[in-house]
Amino acid sequence: MDVILNFTGALCLFIGCFLCISGGVGLLRFPDFYTRMHAVGVTDTLGAGMILIGLMFYSPDFLIFAKLVMILLLTLLVGPTTSHVLAKAAMRNGLMPALEKGDNSKEINSSN
């Protein structure tokens, strides 16, 4: 039983780490602010979620499990609020997204 729990936890941790690293690479790779926000969304929802669920399989008693659930709920409730406030502030202060398909990263970099 313990072996199964540990293996499932390790699998969840591995998926979470892969998603977090993908989000970090996307944060460096995407061309403008609004697309980078989607990359951060990956690490905030399923990346953090899978790591915390993986830790739940390792938790020794119920209180620690409950605290992990609490951190997960807090992350899921707070993440959208932060990204919405950030996007709204950026839009109101005149930072426009690059909308056309293709290689417009040069134009964005030169305008700053």
Binding site: C20, G23, L27, F33, R36, M37, V40, T43, D44, A48, I51, L52, L55, L68, I71, T75, G79, T82, L86, A89, A90, L95, I108, N109, N112
Partner: peptide
């Protein structure tokens, strides 16, 4: 990060990852 908002976004992501790091 070229703009100010990229920096705020990066700092926010750094903070959420710190939460994960402390738990781990």
């Amino acid at each position: 990060g070229p703009t100010l908002y990229d920096r705020i976004l990066a700092v926010n992501m750094f903070g959420t990852k710190t939460v994960l790091l402390i738990s781990l």
